[in-house]
Nucleic acid binder design. Structure first.
Lengths: 344, 344
DNA sequence: TTGAAAGCGCTAACAA
DNA sequence: TTGTTAGCGCTTTCAA
């Protein structure tokens, strides 16, 4: 035993009560005399007694904590979402355990299983880009683990979901470029099977269509590692530079891909980099400092984290099995940068 | 009971053994027949048995997990350090529980106490800017909780520490500005009592002294919220703009303060912002994109996380009480930006 | 080689 | 109102 923690037994012994009396006094039991309660509470206070949450978890099969699985903490969107998650969780008496998958399916599975076996009361998850098969999650969900998806969701599991209005974001970002005079608009995005990829691509296509610009498949680059690996982005940029009809603008559908692309452009072809119009999803706070400047689609990350957590806690604390689920869609915000305003 | 987890009891019942036999078989016991062991292991494999880590923790007083307390996950330095921590921890069979204090002392205490009561086997911590009094940590440490400090350390507790060479970083960043022709160099930094603040300030002073530039107290701004609150930085910038002798350059001693200052300059006085020379601590990957460009002091965050974790695990797994402690100091890296090279 | 039983810290059904 | 006891899942003496 590493720590000499005081237990309920110590209190009982010191005060001459039974452990159950002490237990009842501590948890504000009703079936106990005011006097005893007072004595126990005072003593507990004096010796700074803290109940052992592990013992509680073992007993109650719950831990008053929720698990979070994101791809990457260093991503602005996710770190802001985590802040939203914590803001609600703490106020509701839950602790938050954060894990990251690094866009790796195996790591994701390990994290989820660890969280589940540690008796988290529920799970908030945004899927890794490698996660196509989520049967492992499905079986956990069927066993009764409350799960709420956010950002990268899956159709395969029927539960609450919180997403940004990805179609709108893609549409507005693309249309903004079009209205600024660009016509050859490339699209860098995530792995093809992700929900966010599909939705943002739809928005992109819709904007093109509205303005009678034909969709060009060779303008779309799916980056499986979501910008985590700079080489992948460098290659994508090189690829579009090789096209006979180089894009004159890019709509980039993800936080890390946006910044990685800017870095790649800077390295590869400065002249081109300065001329190209860029709009992209990012929650970076420093985007206004970027040169070349970009127009930004910002997701309400903090609010998404909050709402997902509220839904999860509702699920956890529900007395009856929940069968009605909702998908909350929050609007994105287009922050235009004056210098992107017009094609140079 | 939410989950229908299979327990050792279920296996025992199904196989007609006692729970203790199953337990022994599962943990590769010696005092058990090969035959029984095989049967149990096969069956456990078949039903995908997973031991309940909570029960194990309760029994063994350890959890094979380490707790991490940082100020803010969204800070580049910390998210990179966390990646380093995880890389070592996972390979050594430890899980990592991340918490953030938001530079708030009370939150820090809550996090640490929660982690401790959850039986983390050890703690990695970088102190919040509000944490002057760390007696709460001290008493935990005296009770036997292994602690390793990184980045923001304290003298008050005698244990392993991992820091960057903050003096060097401060010296080089300041001298670089001097060599670029700047002479009126301001200094934005963290709360005064932090170890990193003192060390970086010393580096700054040493560089000034080496080049016979007098130290000017009114050029130093201590930002207690470490850049978390933009208003504080805006005010600091306004303050130095009011000085009769405006600084012509700034050495900024922290990640978030660096970016917040750039944002403040951009908002407040564009002309001044473009002329001023800036060098600052930051681990941002997108610093090359910044305009105005800045010269960067980069800390080896990933390696710091790794080394701190190695030290912690050594502490945790040591058979004998450890009495010799070391402080590892890792060198910073100065990344000069051509445009900062010369005073305009 | 195996099983019975105690115990980690706590709660709660049941008895008194 | 209070105490006794069993049990959450697991390990580990002690006995057989």
């Amino acid at each position: 035993m590493r720590f000499e923690t005081t237990t309920i037994k110590d209190i009982a012994k010191a005060l001459g009560f039974s452990t159950s009396t002490v237990s009842r006094a501590l948890r504000g039991g009703y079936e106990i005399s005011e006097e005893t309660k007072r004595i126990v509470l005072e003593y507990a206070e004096k010796i700074n007694y803290r109940p052992n949450p592990i013992a509680l978890s073992l007993k109650e099969r719950r831990s008053h904590s929720i698990g979070v699985v994101v791809c990457e903490i260093a991503n602005n969107f996710f770190s802001q979402a985590i802040n939203g998650i914590e803001s609600i969780a703490y106020n509701s008496g839950y602790h938050v355990i954060i894990t990251q998958s690094n866009e790796n399916h195996e790591r994701e599975v390990l994290n989820v299983e660890h969280l589940a076996s540690r008796s988290v009361d529920g799970l908030l998850i945004s899927l890794s880009s490698e996660s196509n098969d989520i049967s492992y999650l499905k079986s956990l969900h069927e066993k009764g683990l409350p799960i709420v998806f956010f950002d990268r969701v899956s159709e395969e599991i029927n539960t609450h979901k919180v997403i940004a209005n990805n179609f709108q974001g893609g549409f507005e970002a693309t249309e903004f470029l079009i209205k600024s005079g660009y016509t050859k608009i490339g699209h860098f995005t995530n792995a093809a099977h992700l929900s966010i990829t599909r939705e943002r691509l739809e928005g992109y296509k819709a904007a093109l269509e509205k303005h009678q610009i034909p969709f060009n498949e060779s303008y779309v680059k799916y980056c499986s590692y979501s910008g985590l690996i700079q080489d992948e982005i460098d290659a994508a940029v090189k690829d579009i530079l090789k096209l006979k009809e180089r894009p004159d603008a890019l709509f980039i559908a993800q936080d890390k891909i946006s910044t990685s692309t800017l870095l790649a452009l800077r390295k590869l072809d400065l002249e081109y980099g300065c001329k190209i119009g860029i709009s992209g999803f990012t929650n970076s706070n420093v985007a206004p400092l970027f040169s070349p400047p970009i127009t930004v689609v910002r997701q309400p990350a903090f609010e998404m984290g909050q709402q997902a957590t509220q839904l999860l806690i509702k699920l956890i604390e529900s007395k009856h099995p929940v069968t009605e689920f909702e998908t909350k869609t929050l609007n994105t915000q287009l922050i235009t940068h004056s210098s992107t305003n017009r094609k140079l």
